[in-house]
Amino acid sequence: MSRVLGGARALMAAAKASAASSSPAPAEAAAAVAKPKSSAFTKPMPLSPAMRKFVGVPEISRPEAVKKVWEHIKAHNLQDPANKKLIHCDEKLKAIFGGKETVGMLEIAKLISSHFLKSK
């Protein structure tokens, strides 16, 4: 039995040695992971005046804009307590949602898409 285990130990040691020599250094691996892929979806785009006033910057990516809208909704407690999918708009949200009193949470991305201007 010791011959079997001894052979397995030798194989494991060889496998560990080859894995250590072929894998990148931890700093290199972290650098490779830290760089997110850039896409058109995450690219900052110019905003309409109403959206610019709401977020406070002239350009922002779509996910960041949705995040800012949700921060505003949570900060001002605008979700309907009975139906969390329903958002009651205050004056700031009405300005970017076309004057609607209430909005469904799944509509938010669609409604803010018109505020992203095409860059030339």
Rank of each mutant, 00 (worst) to 15 (best):
residue 52 R to K: 13
residue 114 S to Y: 12
residue 11 L to H: 06
residue 99 G to P: 08
residue 120 K to A: 11
residue 13 A to H: 14
residue 63 P to A: 06
residue 40 A to S: 03
residue 36 P to R: 01
residue 74 K to Y: 07
residue 31 A to Y: 14
residue 75 A to F: 00
residue 19 A to C: 05
residue 47 L to W: 06
residue 10 A to E: 12
residue 47 L to M: 02
residue 43 K to I: 01
residue 93 L to G: 01
residue 44 P to K: 00
residue 90 D to N: 03
residue 42 T to H: 15
residue 94 K to E: 14
residue 108 I to F: 12
residue 67 K to F: 13
residue 120 K to P: 09
residue 58 P to A: 00
residue 13 A to G: 03
residue 14 A to Q: 15
residue 23 S to H: 08
residue 26 P to R: 01
residue 115 H to L: 07
residue 8 A to E: 13
residue 82 A to I: 07
residue 9 R to E: 06
residue 24 P to V: 00
residue 66 V to I: 11
residue 100 K to Y: 06
residue 11 L to W: 00
residue 79 Q to C: 01
residue 91 E to M: 01
residue 6 G to Y: 06
residue 65 A to G: 12
residue 61 S to R: 10
residue 42 T to E: 13
residue 104 G to H: 13
residue 3 R to N: 10
residue 86 L to V: 02
residue 75 A to C: 04
residue 54 F to P: 00
residue 40 A to H: 13
residue 26 P to W: 02
residue 95 A to Q: 15
residue 2 S to K: 09
residue 80 D to M: 09
residue 4 V to N: 09
residue 68 K to D: 03
residue 77 N to E: 12
residue 111 L to M: 14
residue 109 A to F: 04
residue 46 P to G: 03
residue 19 A to G: 04
residue 63 P to Y: 05
residue 82 A to G: 09
residue 66 V to K: 07
residue 5 L to Q: 07
residue 111 L to H: 13
residue 117 L to W: 09
residue 7 G to P: 04
residue 62 R to W: 04
residue 46 P to M: 08
residue 61 S to D: 03
residue 88 H to K: 00
residue 42 T to L: 11
residue 32 A to H: 14
residue 72 H to D: 01
residue 27 A to C: 11
residue 39 S to K: 00
residue 32 A to I: 01
residue 101 E to L: 09
residue 14 A to W: 14
residue 1 M to W: 11
residue 6 G to E: 10
residue 38 S to D: 13
residue 24 P to M: 01
residue 10 A to Y: 11
residue 63 P to D: 03
residue 37 K to F: 06
residue 45 M to Y: 15
residue 70 W to H: 04
residue 48 S to H: 11
residue 65 A to K: 00
residue 42 T to F: 06
residue 1 M to F: 05
residue 110 K to I: 06
residue 34 A to Y: 15
residue 21 S to Q: 08
residue 1 M to L: 14
residue 36 P to M: 10
residue 60 I to W: 10
residue 111 L to Y: 15
residue 23 S to W: 11
residue 90 D to T: 04
residue 4 V to R: 14
residue 108 I to G: 02
residue 61 S to N: 08
residue 11 L to A: 12
residue 102 T to W: 05
residue 67 K to N: 12
residue 105 M to G: 05
residue 99 G to S: 13
residue 94 K to C: 04
residue 3 R to L: 05
residue 103 V to D: 09
residue 76 H to Q: 06
residue 73 I to D: 04
residue 92 K to F: 02
residue 29 A to E: 13
residue 69 V to Y: 10
residue 37 K to P: 01
residue 115 H to C: 06
residue 61 S to A: 15
residue 79 Q to E: 04
residue 94 K to G: 02
residue 83 N to F: 14
residue 99 G to F: 04
residue 77 N to G: 08
residue 117 L to N: 03
residue 22 S to Q: 09
residue 101 E to D: 09
residue 107 E to G: 06
residue 63 P to M: 00
residue 23 S to M: 06
residue 74 K to W: 10
residue 95 A to P: 11
residue 107 E to P: 02
residue 65 A to M: 07
residue 8 A to N: 05
residue 92 K to G: 05
residue 55 V to R: 14
residue 110 K to Y: 11
residue 15 A to Y: 15
residue 17 A to W: 10
residue 30 A to T: 00
residue 24 P to W: 07
residue 112 I to A: 08
residue 109 A to M: 00
residue 44 P to S: 12
residue 56 G to L: 09
residue 3 R to E: 15
residue 58 P to D: 07
residue 55 V to K: 08
residue 64 E to Y: 12
